[in-house]
Design a protein around this nucleic acid. Structure first.
Lengths: 226, 226
DNA sequence: TCAAAAGTGTTTGTCCTACACCCATGA
DNA sequence: TCATGGGTGTAGGACAAACACTTTTGA
């Protein structure tokens, strides 16, 4: 690093916000109200303010788009995209973040002027800028992380059943899993989940135990895709 | 993303360049010749030029510091660091890259004015800026990737023996591995390595087969740390 | 002949898969 | 009572750790 050299450029934080709804992996997109790419779908995001940390920007945008208290939301840096021609307005470097949120009880309200919607990840094509690529990277990250981390719980409400957790894996990976073996594996992996002590019949059939997140940060051995 | 908003800021690419020498994991550091942090060790890096892609900046710096043709060098984006106060000169956002290079036959020459050295990763402390953190993240990434990718070969010359490859794992992970089981596992994992057909006695003892990289991009099943 | 490293065989235990089977509820 | 999902048991196979053993070189 030599002299300071302030090239004129914009610094943005864009968000890949994923959730599982109706058994399908979905992403929160906004429809752009202004050029460039007016009318097209894009990832939510915004410019980093002076003296604002990158993650603070991301969390602020997340709160604006989802209307949620974001303290308990999983948010991690994904990657940075800086091709010189990625934004027709000029040089804009975007730090992308990946957020995993539970199926929201409240609708996506108050997301300023632009209209926001949950869209099936499978159906998304033709996003503005290089957002197709960013989304692909985010989904791939999420798929990989479910294998060796307890991150699937980030898609669940505070209390969940084992089959709800299984539904997350099936939606994100797009493959069916054996309910019996899944149950055994999850409950036997140390600190993956912890029993609450109560049961629910919201999934039908025999009452299922409720669990909340355990304290594990990595899974040994990992969960395996079919 | 709303209006263009060009906050004055510097955009830099910093490099965590790792190698394995003498059985130890080492990182390339430069001693800073100018303030801030004058005289302290830091990661090599430099500012992104206008209209230059981020990875191009990283590869240019890599070539400058190592004197190598960088085409065959493994280089991947690590993470972006943008705390407002991380550089006392002003707002500087740094995109960090991780490079894995073989034990260089040629010395580290021509790295402009600053003096560059290979330092044992274990012994590094007190780097300039937030470079301790960046280095830690880079080493952690390398350790994790050896498990499920054939990336250990990036530390090896084009032709290598199985025990040289094992030496890479032992150095990066800091644990001894069973030579017999390691040999079996590597040679039986499809497309991890491919036999050249010749042998060498440079490691002493019975001649060892030489291998080069296979075409695999992920390892199934993964290599396991002790 | 000996040391050193390469490479193979074998045992033992763990984990995964597949599926038979039983349990507890609502309709 | 039946349908539905929750949960346990178990047999068979794949794989990993540990280590005895053989092979091929240089000194």
């Amino acid at each position: 690093m030599r002299d300071m050299d302030f090239v004129p450029l914009g610094l943005a934080a864009d968000l890949v916000i994923l959730t599982v709804r109706d058994g399908r992996l979905q992403v929160l997109l906004i429809r752009r109200g202004i050029p460039p790419y007016e009318g097209q779908w894009a990832l939510p995001g915004g410019f980093v303010r002076p003296d604002e940390d990158l993650e603070t920007t991301a969390r602020r945008e997340l709160a604006e788009e989802t209307g949620l208290t974001t303290e308990r939301i999983h948010l991690e840096q994904l990657a940075t995209y800086g091709a010189p021609d990625r934004d027709p307005r000029g040089r804009v470097v975007s730090v992308a973040y990946l957020a995993l949120v539970p199926d929201l009880p409240a609708p996506v309200a108050g997301s300023d002027a632009a209209s926001a919607s949950w869209i099936d990840v499978q159906k998304v094509r033709g996003l503005a800028f290089d957002h197709d690529r960013i989304l692909t990277d985010g989904v791939e990250r999420a798929r990989a992380k479910l294998e060796y981390s307890p991150l699937a719980t980030a898609f669940c409400p505070p209390e969940f059943t084992i089959s709800e957790l299984r539904g997350v894996y099936e939606a994100v990976w797009g493959t069916p899993l054996d309910p019996r073996n899944f149950h055994r594996k999850v409950t036997k992996t140390p600190d993956f989940v912890a029993p609450v002590g109560t049961t629910t019949t919201r999934d039908g059939g025999r009452p299922a135990q409720l669990f909340h997140r355990g304290t594990a940060t990595t899974l040994h051995p990992p969960m395996t895709r079919a």
